[in-house]
Structures are given as structure tokens and as C-alpha cells.
């Protein structure tokens, strides 16, 4: 049986056109994707670059668990995600998610659900470097308290 989920970490730039191949399927007419980009500000401070650090073994397990449960919940055909590690510049793609399905609605819903799950459970940590020369690990108290939806 062909594997219908694919999760990986990458220390190199992500190209969504290439990554689409992970979920392409002649059976599927709907493709939804999400890209997270590095933005130049956080809580009013100017950000110059980011670093992502991952716990690789658990990312694999957790990433696959999330993608597999998306297939079950939404009945989509294929789901894939790639998360960057290492140093990223403003505008770089930090994460790519792709979902394919016979029809569009399920693909869109599954894609939105996957990014929410990844943000709340995937063991990846972001360090922001600010214009004033300081840097800090993003410490999200609301994540720790499980309050769910909010901007980072």
C-alpha cells in the first residue's frame, strides 16, 4: 500500500511547487496548502531572522500522528507537511502543508486543522533575533495553558 502521509524536517529552503508532488494523485481534484512565512515583527518588535530547533525523533512520530488523524477525521486522501529547522530569513517558508482530496472542502478543512495541531503539539522551538541585537525563545504561556487559538 502506498504511504498516504509524509512528514519531514528540512534544514534547506522549501519549494512548494516541488513539495506538491508529495500529495499529487489522479484521484484527487482538490488540493489545499498552507505556508507559514517568517515575518518581520513580533509583539511590536522588529525581527531580523529566526532559528528553529526540533526534537527530530518526536517530530517524526507526532507529525505522522497528526497527518494520519487528519486523513481519518476529514476523509482526505493524502496529507504531507515539512517543517524547517536552522536559520531562516524574513520571508522564508517555515512550514509547508499540503492536503489532497477528491473534493475541495475536506482538503481545506484538513489543512487548517493540521496547522493548528502542529502549532500546539509539534516539538519545535522558535528563537527570534531582534533588530536591537537581542534574541529570545518564543515563550508562549497561552500554549502552555492550552488556551488554543492565538497569534504568535
Amino acid at each position: 500500500m502506498t504511504e498516504n502521509v509524509a512528514f519531514s524536517l528540512s534544514d534547506e529552503g522549501l519549494d512548494s511547487r516541488t513539495l506538491q508532488g508529495l500529495v499529487r494523485d489522479p484521484h484527487c481534484g482538490g488540493y489545499a496548502s498552507f505556508e507559514g512565512w517568517v515575518r518581520d515583527h513580533h509583539e511590536g518588535r522588529e525581527v531580523t531572522r529566526l532559528e528553529y530547533e526540533a526534537y527530530p525523533a518526536m517530530c517524526q512520530k507526532e507529525g505522522r500522528r497528526i497527518l494520519k488523524s487528519a486523513l481519518e477525521r476529514f476523509g482526505v486522501d493524502k496529507a504531507a507537511a515539512v517543517h524547517r529547522t536552522g536559520s531562516l530569513a524574513i520571508g522564508d517558508v517555515a512550514i509547508w502543508i499540503g492536503v489532497s482530496s477528491a473534493h475541495r472542502r475536506e482538503a481545506l478543512e484538513a489543512c487548517a486543522w493540521i496547522i493548528d495541531e502542529i502549532k500546539s503539539t509539534l516539538p519545535v522551538w522558535k528563537k527570534e533575533f531582534f533588530k536591537d541585537g537581542t534574541s529570545e525563545w518564543v515563550r508562549c504561556d497561552r500554549c502552555a495553558q492550552g488556551h488554543g487559538h492565538h497569534a504568535h
Binding site: M58, I95, I115, T121, V124, W125, K126, C143, H152
Partner: peptide, 10 residues
Amino acid sequence: LVFLPPVSGG
């Protein structure tokens, strides 16, 4: 063992 700080990926 790993003690995991609050995650901030995505």
C-alpha cells in the same frame, strides 16, 4: 528523557 519547553513551531 526530554523536558519540553512550550512549543512554538509552525
